[in-house]
Design a protein around this nucleic acid. Structure first.
Lengths: 152, 152
DNA sequence: CTATCTGCAAAGTGTTTGCAGGGAT
DNA sequence: ATCCCTGCAAACACTTTGCAGATAG
């Protein structure tokens, strides 16, 4: 079983469908205006694969935090970004069309790397549906530890 | 592979080591006093397998929320409870010696059930250590969806 | 022109801290 | 009697809301 797992294993490589242009188009279709602040936020999401925090976006865009929260809520509603939870009670979002993956969060330097799991979780979800009659809609899975540079 | 997985599968059945008595003993060993509020909190943890929130503990114990937060921090420091994250920015704790498991959170009725995964995540963690040279210390994994009663 | 967007201030929610009084041992 | 434990109020950090003024289309 171990060998089969290792065999299927697969590094993260994203197939992004969403580019700045497609997102802008989607915004226009929804009668949203393309303001400088909004464009900046979209660009930041397209340039970064790790989840972005409100603090980060405020510092990069110089927008008011209120506007950033509102922008994130909008992009979430339009299905452009999705929230990610690092258990630190802060909102974070990443592009929604990234291939399904999980995060490796270094508890020392806070660096975030991505990892694509094998099929394990699909098996688990199917098992849960069968055993518990629980209909799984989503899951949160993040790994915490030391990255290569910080690893003792 | 599917069959093997299903084969190993395993329902949750806890082997608790921590009882009210062992926890009280551990508190005494650490020169902590056994006050009525503290005893109540310990009893609540021993009676419930689902993670307990501050609000729940305050309502059950009639303690001040400050005291509850302090008590949780203490029990956490002594290794009696551990925090659990439901991505709702609220602190939750459960007994630490429950067999390693995960949670099925119903997004409608908020009921929390437990699920013990097969070995999948161990394989994944080993893979991560090898591929990414990332030393995994812990992970957060919670499933969200509809429980049997609330299901579709 | 006008509906959407923005910044500011203020309120809301959950958590933490400081301090003085109260209680377990 | 000692020192830990407790409640209260106030501070904190993050998020949300209301509103008046600014601006993309």
């Amino acid at each position: 079983v171990v060998l089969m797992f290792v065999d299927i294993c697969n590094l993260v490589a994203y197939d992004k469908i969403m580019t700045v242009d497609t997102i802008i188009k989607s915004l226009r279709e929804n009668k949203k205006r393309i303001t400088p602040g909004r464009r900046k936020i979209v660009e930041l999401f397209c340039r970064n694969t790790s989840p972005l925090s409100v603090r980060f976006l405020v510092s990069k865009t110089k927008l008011n935090k209120t506007s950033v929260y509102r922008e994130l809520a909008l992009l979430d509603k339009l299905g452009i970004v999705q929230d990610v939870d690092f258990a630190d009670r802060k909102k974070r979002y990443e592009l929604k069309d990234l291939e399904h993956h999980h995060h490796l969060v270094c508890i020392k330097c806070k660096h975030v790397d991505d990892i694509k799991l094998t099929e394990s979780l699909n098996f688990e979800e199917k098992r849960i549906e069968k055993l518990k009659k629980f209909r799984v809609l989503k899951h949160n899975l993040e790994f915490f530890g030391y990255c290569q540079s910080c690893g003792s």
